[in-house]
């Protein structure tokens, strides 16, 4: 219990991932859903860095840099979509976003 193994980091990562998943599934405000996605990406990053430290291999940290770049791109495009949608519909509730529903 007192020695911190990669399993501890995996459990922390899984728990944070779950919090993000619950946020995505439960909340209706699309901005909070985007923040939950950021939490999920962070959970993955914790796992990558912990295993990179464990294996003494830098590839995990390289991957984290790419994940952060993709997260930045995702945030920019997603928030642009939110603003464009809000301008037309005056809402950020995902239940009212059925424009492209089949």
């Amino acid at each position: 219990m007192l020695e911190i193994t990669p399993l501890h980091y995996s459990v922390l990562s899984a728990a944070l991932f779950m919090i993000g998943v619950i946020g995505v599934l439960v909340r209706r405000n699309i901005i909070i859903i985007f923040m939950s996605i950021e939490l999920i990406l962070n959970a993955v990053n914790i796992n990558l860095v912990a295993l990179s430290d464990q294996l003494q291999n830098l590839i995990g940290q390289v991957f984290v840099v790419f994940v952060i770049a993709v997260a930045a791109a995702e945030a920019a495009v997603g928030l642009g979509i939110i603003i464009a949608f809000y301008r037309n519909k005056e809402t950020v509730n995902i239940d009212e976003m059925s424009l492209m529903r089949w």
Partner: peptide, 12 residues
């Protein structure tokens, strides 16, 4: 990142 930047500007 460049594509995302242009896309965000076009969208917003």
């Amino acid at each position: 990142l460049l594509v995302a930047m242009i896309g965000a500007i076009v969208l917003a």
